[in-house]
Design a protein around this nucleic acid. Structure first.
Length: 301
DNA sequence: ACCGAGGTCCACTCAAGGTG
DNA sequence: CACCTTGAGTGGACCTCGGT
């Protein structure tokens, strides 16, 4: 009943990062039988006995839950959903409102709110095409634009995305590349989180700024600059603390940057495969880069 | 510390289509 | 044909950051 869930903002390219969020998913009695479903006036009582702690929690929001325009048969239920089972199966997930090319697999059965959409299955090739620079180029021209240069990946658009047919060699190669890319992305996510955690514990940085959150773009000096900025310049860093920062940079962040570099090369290879499958000529590929929209997932080599 | 601008994200609501 | 279920779209709320 209590499921881990993702928001649009938790999705990164190749790998999503679950942020310890949980969703209480109580299905509507209109299409799912629960202990209380046919208990009429006693339903609330039965629910409260069946799930006392959830009941106590929801009770705090009773009025607001009752006034929802969308809800299940009972006030503690969600509105009905035709595809509950699909959440638990392997899927390709993507944010509906998006500024970047961010598609990835979820095989952990994560639930989502409606800022995340998904396609059933774990087709590697589909993921390769979805994340490709050429698809971002195409989407920029064909998908609905929302506020602030966002693209809206609504159903109507996504179902019409043209997917080229790959040869079996291309299929095999792309799978290999994607597996490695997912692996690297996961490692880079973990590294970033570990360092941010360390900064929190050792340097009292509870709210890292944008630059610290994209750790891998920093060099040794800019890391120190940002740490000082966020802590407030009045809190001096000791010589030992400075040394620790520099050491951590060379033992953890520098190697991670190497990995990021490898990922970039893999990305280029994968992009080439996708372009090839579309049968793009060198002139067309050149045109794509010359007319590239903002925030292409890669830059021309 | 405050403020405004800009960036990011989601809650809310409408309505199509199904059902009895 | 009235009601209900589910699909779908979007504008405003919230957050961050840089400048003063």
């Amino acid at each position: 009943m209590i499921k881990p869930y993702l928001r649009g903002q938790d999705i990164n390219r190749w790998k999503a990062q679950w942020n310890d969020l949980w969703m209480i998913t109580i299905k509507s009695s209109s299409d799912y039988k629960s202990e209380w479903s046919d208990k009429g006036d006693l339903a609330e009582k039965v629910f409260s006995y069946s799930y006392p702690s959830v009941y106590q929690h929801l009770l705090k929001y009773r009025d607001r839950l009752i006034s929802r325009s969308d809800q299940g048969t009972f006030w503690w239920e969600l509105r009905s959903c035709a595809y509950w089972n699909s959440f638990e199966k392997p899927k390709i997930i993507f944010p509906e409102i998006t500024w970047r090319s961010q598609w990835c697999f979820d095989t952990e059965g994560l639930y989502t709110n409606n800022t995340v959409y998904f396609l059933q299955g774990n087709e590697y090739w589909l993921l390769a095409v979805a994340n490709s620079p050429v698809n971002w180029w195409y989407s920029w021209r064909k998908a609905i634009h929302g506020k602030d240069e966002a693209l809206r990946f609504i159903k109507k658009y996504v179902l019409k995305m043209p997917i080229p047919i790959p040869t079996s060699e291309v299929l095999l190669k792309s799978k290999e590349l994607i597996d490695r890319l997912i692996n690297i992305s996961q490692k880079l996510n973990t590294t970033t989180n570990t360092i941010l955690d360390w900064l929190c514990v050792e340097f009292e940085i509870t709210k890292p700024n944008q630059k610290l959150r994209s750790l891998l773009d920093l060099n040794s000096d800019s890391l120190i600059t940002e740490v000082r900025k966020v802590r407030g310049k009045k809190k001096l860093l000791s010589a030992a603390a400075l040394k620790a920062l520099r050491e951590e940079y060379s033992t953890t962040i520098a190697p991670a940057k190497e990995l990021a570099l490898e990922a970039l090369q893999l990305e280029h290879q994968l992009s080439d495969l996708v372009n090839q499958a579309y049968g793009l000529t060198p002139e067309e590929i050149d045109l794509m880069w010359k007319t590239a929209p903002p925030r292409m997932p890669l830059h021309r080599e």
